[in-house]
Amino acid sequence: MLNEIDGMNTEIKFSPEALAQAQKIIARYPQGKQKSALLPLLHLAQSEFDGWLSPEVMDYVASLLSIKPIEVYEVATFYSMFNTKPVGKCLIEVCQTGPCWLRGADEIVAYIKKKLNIEVGETTADGMFTLKTVECLGSCGTAPMLQCGANFYENLTPEKVDELIEKFRTSGKRTSYLRLNEFQNA
């Protein structure tokens, strides 16, 4: 669905660069243990195919590793970083566990909800932002924080959130766990 929005080719196949990267990853593990490459390959696939893992994408990854599709599905649904439904271009993940809560995470979540006019788990109508709450990301000393793409944005205030969202909007690019955004803290 998002493929159409982005006007991209819908054929499920890694680019030559991504395929080379996948082969490099598989070579890290002993002969016959190529299934070990599943998590890194799913990260790569999610990054290549619009930020989520469709059944077709998971089947493709299964074929690359010569494993059964079910072995991919059961893993993709276990780990919280894998999206099995489409998400907005910027997946904003706000940590809400104890140490972040002590430093005002609830207020940050409430602020973003109001600003983007969405609930947690929802995507803005323009497909730009999805808001998610997550559990401890190891940023307790710089709380409250959010992750978007590979970046951690820390010591958040409503003003910093405003700046960040503005920057994401201007950039218009899809974020990925495998890429740092061109801007760090607002």
Partner: peptide, 9 residues
């Protein structure tokens, strides 16, 4: 080698 997980305490 470095091997990334994918979100699971």
């Amino acid at each position: 080698y470095v091997h990334p997980g994918a979100g699971a305490y």
